[in-house]
């Protein structure tokens, strides 16, 4: 295998793993807790911008550029996004299920707007450049550089995966699932469902913020255009394909969908003449939109499906209510 190919594969996988992190965050909110976030792109953007502000060198034409270490940036990104998620959740979680969806959608629109217009902080439409990349001193050696970056992402994803699996099996995770499967049963356990949901929403948001930060530092440059609703949709497609509620599925789905996305770019582009490439890009989005709807219709549990941990017991407890609170009805 040529060096270029290995470098490309490493680059591809690194990018895919940044999406895997977003997917893991969304999985905490949706897969474990049943909270619908239509503003993933907004939360990812918050993380990316916060980390960029904290770590870039001082810039004369905008606020910040604090030149802090990358790890501080990532931590700050996770904290800031977690806090933003907490506020949105606090506002809407006690209301109807889809008010949260509408509110998160509003967050995404507003974050996009702020990124675009608050030039003195976000750099406006041109975004922020010179975001420090890990192992930047090795940039001269593409192979080492890309492999080391891949290594960083693998470590991040692995640590997150282990932490989330641990959480999932902890009493906290079990209560969370119980709440999702059947609120009456969960309340009967004497737990405050709203508090648990809020915690899950904030943790999921923090992970999305971290994802935005790692991606920003891997690419080295961010702009409002990176955080359009399409991103939200891609992350959703990844989680649904992989199987919501399943952390391994979230990672697998991210790699798979990102692969399909990257491959379809070339395939569809080759069908259209150069002056029609904008059309080709639109068609690609049509196809992925139809694809997601088809998965919802045909295979609502995704490729890996969900791991059943406490749900069997609860299903026995209150069979009639399952359809009301479960993301998918049982197959007849």
């Amino acid at each position: 295998m040529s060096v270029e190919l290995v470098a490309y594969v490493a680059f591809f996988l690194t990018m895919a793993l940044t999406y895997a992190v977003m997917c893991l965050g969304l999985n905490v909110q949706w897969g474990q807790t049943g909270l619908f976030n239509v503003g993933v792109a907004g939360f990812v953007a918050i993380g990316a911008y916060v980390s960029a502000l904290l770590t870039t060198p001082d810039a004369p034409d905008r606020f910040g550029g604090f030149g802090l270490p990358i790890l501080v940036g990532w931590l700050g990104a996770a904290l800031a996004t977690g806090l933003a998620s907490f506020l949105v959740g606090w506002l809407t979680i006690r209301l109807r299920a889809d008010y949260l969806a509408i509110a998160t959608f509003g967050v995404a629109v507003t974050v996009q707007l702020v990124a675009l217009n608050l030039q003195s902080i976000t750099g406006g439409p041109f975004g922020i450049g010179f975001i420090p990349r890990p192992f930047a001193n090795l940039a001269g050696d593409p192979l080492a550089f890309s492999l080391l970056n891949l290594g960083v992402l693998i470590v991040v994803v692995a640590l997150l995966y282990l932490a989330l699996e641990h959480l999932l099996r902890s009493p906290w995770g079990r209560v969370l699932r119980a709440i999702r499967e059947d609120e009456t049963a969960a309340l009967a356990l004497g737990k405050n469902a709203t508090r648990f949901r809020l915690q899950a929403f904030a943790i999921g948001g923090a992970i999305m913020g971290l994802a935005g930060a790692t991606q920003a530092h891997f690419v080295g440059f961010i702009a409002p255009d990176n955080y359009v609703p399409l991103l939200t949709f891609q992350v959703w497609a990844m989680l649904i394909v992989g199987g919501s509620g399943n952390n391994r599925g979230a990672i697998l789905g991210a790699i798979l969908v990102w692969g399909i996305w990257a491959a379809s770019a070339g395939a569809i582009a080759s069908l259209f003449p150069p002056d029609q490439q904008a059309r080709a890009a639109a068609l690609r989005i049509v196809l992925i939109g139809i694809g997601l709807c088809a998965i919802l219709l045909l295979r609502p549990r995704g490729i890996l499906g969900e791991e059943r941990i406490v749900s069997r017991h609860l299903a026995r407890l209150k069979p009639a209510r399952r359809t009301a609170s479960n993301p998918t009805s049982p197959e007849p």
């Binding site: 049943g34 619908f36 239509v38 299920a97 969806a101 919802l296 219709l297 993301p327 998918t328």
Partner: peptide, 9 residues
């Protein structure tokens, strides 16, 4: 299907 599946669709 749950409300949220409809929203996602």
């Amino acid at each position: 299907s749950a409300v949220i599946i409809m929203v996602m669709a």
